[in-house]
């Protein structure tokens, strides 16, 4: 069979990904991550009376630490798989890739 005809056959039998569901899940989880980051920022500025610049550094380090720890505990890959970009785009995605490679 010629390659082009086969390509059409394959396309016909390949399922479409659920783009809408993925997009909604990514938006919601990403938003939650953002809100959580904001919460950490407020907490660090308030309880430890840090200027915003320092608090943001601590917030990023905290998120990286959480991402690494959850990856090690073994279930973060399932969460990332579910949330897709909602957990990959935030700093947690970067921590997760580093940690999974290190493990």
């Amino acid at each position: 069979m010629e390659k082009s005809r086969y390509k059409d056959l394959v396309k016909k039998n390949t399922p479409k990904e659920d783009r809408l569901t993925n997009g909604v899940i990514a938006f919601l989880t990403g938003g939650l991550m953002g809100a959580f980051g904001e919460f950490l920022l407020q907490m660090y500025s308030y309880f430890f009376s840090m200027p915003t610049k320092e608090a943001s550094v601590f917030m990023i380090v905290t998120l990286i630490g959480i991402g690494c720890l959850l990856t090690c505990l073994g279930f973060f890959d399932k969460w990332v798989h579910f949330a897709r970009c909602g957990l990959i785009i935030p700093i947690t995605g970067f921590a997760h890739s580093m940690q999974s490679a290190a493990l």
Binding site: T29, G30, G37, F39, I89
Partner: peptide, 23 residues
């Protein structure tokens, strides 16, 4: 108000990433 803004911005960026990933 800040929390809502944080939610919307981060959610939008992730949505954009998801659209690129899927398409």
């Amino acid at each position: 108000m800040n929390y809502l803004h944080a939610f919307l911005f981060a959610g939008f960026v992730c949505l954009l990433g998801q659209i690129i990933l899927d398409n």
